[in-house]
């Protein structure tokens, strides 16, 4: 294998575009996964079977099919239903939807982990249901789930190259495009690999620090 680091200079503009797209996908995917997951978790707790049951079934289905298949489905089928999104938006939707089924489980465990005494104290004070959720239960549950949610952000980062398959030019996509134009793959691939570590490692350190602060 020969490395010619001078090639890297030519790759840099595309590389930075790719970094930006990867971060966008990660941010969008995370926000979607965090918010949808909470919706699923609350819906699954609903005493109305018509709400809880379909949500459980769909979440189970999404969790047990590959992300890649879901991305293809969204990319090829949504336009036929009249919903045309950019490749990046489709990718964010796919990542967010897929990971929301995992974060839902995380939220569920976090909510279940709030001691029954907290519900009872809220009832004893006559706090309305909505207030109990907002002021008592969710703040305690969310504090517990931050570390686990963070782990899924890192997992999502590592799944983000899959978006390449639907034409999103994130880091790996840029590297491949650069390679196919210049027939120089080695240096750009290494650069992308390093970029993943440079993003993921500090993120996990940050998480651990957050975990130490939150879990007491």
């Amino acid at each position: 294998m020969n490395f010619d680091w001078s090639n890297l200079g030519d790759f840099m503009p595309a590389f930075w575009d790719g970094v930006l797209v990867t971060l966008q996908a990660l941010l969008g995917g995370s926000l979607l996964a965090f918010s949808l997951g909470l919706v699923w978790a609350l819906a699954q707790r609903s005493s109305l079977k018509v709400v809880s049951w379909p949500v459980k079934a769909v979440a189970e289905f999404i969790r047990n099919t590959p992300l890649l298949v879901q991305l293809f489905f969204l990319f090829y089928v949504l336009p036929e239903w009249g919903l045309t999104l950019s490749a990046l938006a489709t990718g964010i939707l796919g990542l967010g939807l897929h990971y929301s089924t995992y974060t839902a489980e995380v939220y569920r465990a976090g909510i279940d982990g709030v001691p029954a005494g907290q519900w009872e104290a809220a009832t004893a004070l006559s706090l309305p249901r909505s207030r109990t959720w907002i002021a008592v239960i969710l703040p305690q549950a969310l504090r517990r789930v931050v570390p686990a949610l963070g782990n899924y952000v890192i997992a999502m980062l590592k799944d983000s190259p899959m978006l390449m398959t639907i034409g999103v030019l994130e880091m790996l996509g840029e590297a491949r495009q650069f390679g196919s134009q210049t027939f120089q793959m080695n240096e750009s691939i290494v650069a992308v690999g390093i970029a993943f570590i440079v993003i993921a490692y500090p993120a996990s350190l940050l998480l651990r620090a957050l975990e130490r602060r939150l879990v007491r």
Partner: peptide
């Protein structure tokens, strides 16, 4: 067990 709200 007191059941104070620990987040407040």
């Amino acid at each position: 067990q007191f059941n104070l709200f620990p987040n407040m």
